[in-house]
């Protein structure tokens, strides 16, 4: 088994580990770093449950090797809140009932983070296309869309007052 030492900065903290070169980034995060908020829902890169930010871009961490993240910045769901205080996107999901079983939720939130970063004021249509790489089986997406709209509004008000 080939291994390589990598350093990945996860939610601001550097983690240096010797890993197998075939280890998936999602398994590195979940099994090696014990951050289990990032989920696995498929084996074909379709569901988006594993979505994280890699250098600020939302990616499916089941489709990236851990060694490819060497030296890079990873943001996971565990890095979104400020202590116990929700990030506006998390708050939106809570306020608008954007989650049921919660399994797709971390991936949805990480995807929404990049979406709102690129397009702070998206239309419903843009949100729906924007999250179309993330599957949810419980909510019918409607309240997820509302949650992201809630966050967009809150984040733009915060940006104005800042």
């Amino acid at each position: 088994m080939k291994t390589k030492e990598i350093t990945v900065h996860v939610n601001g903290t550097p983690h240096t580990k010797e890993v197998s070169t075939r280890l998936l980034l999602v398994h590195f995060i979940r099994d090696d770093l014990d951050m289990t908020g990032t989920h696995i829902g498929c084996d074909t890169s379709n569901c988006g449950a594993c979505t994280i930010l890699l250098d600020g871009k939302s990616i499916k961490s089941c489709t990236v090797l851990a060694v490819q993240a060497d030296g890079k910045q990873v943001t996971t769901i565990e890095g979104m809140a400020n202590g116990a205080q929700f990030h506006p996107i998390q708050e939106g999901f809570h306020e608008e009932h954007g989650l049921q079983c919660g399994f797709c939720t971390p991936g949805m939130i990480m995807r929404a983070a990049e979406l709102l970063e690129k397009n702070p004021n998206p239309t419903e249509e843009e949100i729906r296309w924007g999250i179309s790489g993330n599957l949810c089986r419980c909510t019918g997406y409607q309240n997820i869309v509302k949650a992201i709209q809630y966050a967009a509004e809150k984040m733009s008000t915060e940006a104005e007052t800042a």
Binding site: I77, E78, M80, H94, E95, L99, G102
Partner: peptide
């Protein structure tokens, strides 16, 4: 009422079976 169970899921602190070690 807003859901009482939300917080753990939103923080990535839910405990699904594959999260147990």
């Amino acid at each position: 009422m807003k859901r009482k169970e939300d917080a753990r899921f939103l923080h990535g602190q839910g405990t699904y079976v594959d999260d147990i070690k």
